[in-house]
């Protein structure tokens, strides 16, 4: 019997014995089975800034895990060795949802991040683990491309505390040509997340000649301002040649600095530059009085003056989930 997987917009028709495009949702005897459930292929303790989350428990560590598989096939994927592989080819370790908060607490983590590949495809593992993590008094963070149908996404958002969504470009052509996906479901996920009150940060990888024109950057920033709000942190990240996209050069620093100027002129309060060291690229300033609130270098927090989520100088509330 053929199964249609309605988890993500690809709606794969899966023949018996076959998997969907994500490689890990398999039709076994007419039943859809998540074969990587409880078996992450990688588990690490990362600084939360590595995700990157800059307005979510800054300066803390997060137990970060992933299983094999992804529903997107980005030509520039940095983690293709785990995202674009079959589970048969990648070793994994047994780790039940109930064991995750214990492991996180043992390593002094304040949160668990479902990251590296895409937690959307190991949906059931993410959902069950999030409940266990929340029960243990820790927080959950998703690092995702947001390519999922509305109903399952809404359900998952109710179980997590923060979502970092990769908005790869604001054109359907980019999503189709580079990622094998479409734009609209990602925009829908962003709007749904915001409407549910879950903390969001957005990242945009600037790839030379593909999505780095002033017009495209401006359109992306304006979309965020109009649909999510000025306070949503936006991270511009530097591209490095990788996987099937080794023909393009790394993003020049000037392009990232220009993108930051465009984002600020569009009205965004918190704009960051990642994968590169430039002056104030990772620092948080108060949008009211301009005071330096959080000073960062690489993934390290050097100074954090935010008190109870507010600027200590002008008392303005700063968007985020603070300690």
């Amino acid at each position: 019997m053929i199964i249609r997987c309605d988890l993500c917009p690809k709606r794969c028709m899966i023949e018996p014995g076959q998997s969907g495009e994500c490689r890990i949702r398999v039709n076994l005897d007419g039943r859809l089975v998540a074969v990587t459930y409880g078996h992450p292929c990688t588990v690490h303790v990362d600084p939360i800034e590595k995700k990157p989350f800059f307005h979510f428990l800054p300066g803390t560590t997060s137990l970060s895990l992933a299983t094999v598989g992804c529903n997107l096939h980005c030509k520039n994927c940095q983690n293709w060795e785990i995202s674009q592989q079959n589970p048969e080819e990648v070793p994994a370790s047994p780790l039940s949802p109930a064991e995750i908060p214990k492991l996180a607490a043992a390593h002094g983590c304040r949160s668990v991040s479902y990251t590296y590949t895409d937690p959307v495809v190991y949906y059931e593992y993410t959902a069950d683990s999030s409940l266990c993590v929340r029960e243990a008094g820790l927080k959950n963070a998703l690092v995702t491309a947001g390519y999922i149908n509305r109903e399952p996404w809404t359900e998952l958002c109710r179980k997590v505390d923060a979502v970092r969504i990769d908005l790869k470009a604001l054109t359907d052509k980019f999503y189709q040509d580079i990622c094998g996906a479409t734009l609209q479901p990602v925009l829908d996920s962003l709007i749904t997340t915001r409407s549910l009150g879950v903390h969001i940060e957005v990242i945009n990888l600037l790839i030379p000649t593909l999505n780095d024109s002033d017009r495209e950057i401006r359109a992306l920033c304006q979309w965020i301002v109009q649909n999510l709000g000025r306070e949503i942190p936006l991270h511009f990240s530097r591209f490095f040649p990788n996987y099937q996209m080794k023909n393009l050069p790394p993003t020049p620093a000037s392009a990232l600095i220009r993108a930051r100027e465009i984002a600020r002129s569009a009205g965004l309060y918190y704009v960051y530059l990642g994968n590169i060291l430039v002056p104030d690229g990772e620092n948080t300033f108060c949008p009211e009085c301009g005071d330096l609130l959080i000073e960062r270098r690489a993934f390290e927090v050097l100074k954090n003056t935010i008190e109870n989520g507010r600027c200590p100088r002008c008392n303005r509330q700063i968007y985020g989930v603070w300690l």
């Binding site: 988890l7 859809l32 089975v33 074969v35 459930y37 690490h44 070793p91 149908n149």
Partner: peptide
């Protein structure tokens, strides 16, 4: 046969090895 939630798999189809605690503690 439209399905959103999959059944939880009991067996991983690839190689399985115990969690390396030392590697977990590193980024």
């Amino acid at each position: 046969t439209r399905v959103v939630q999959a059944l939880r798999g009991r067996y991983y189809p690839g190689p399985v090895r115990p969690l390396d605690q030392e590697s977990v503690s590193r980024p």
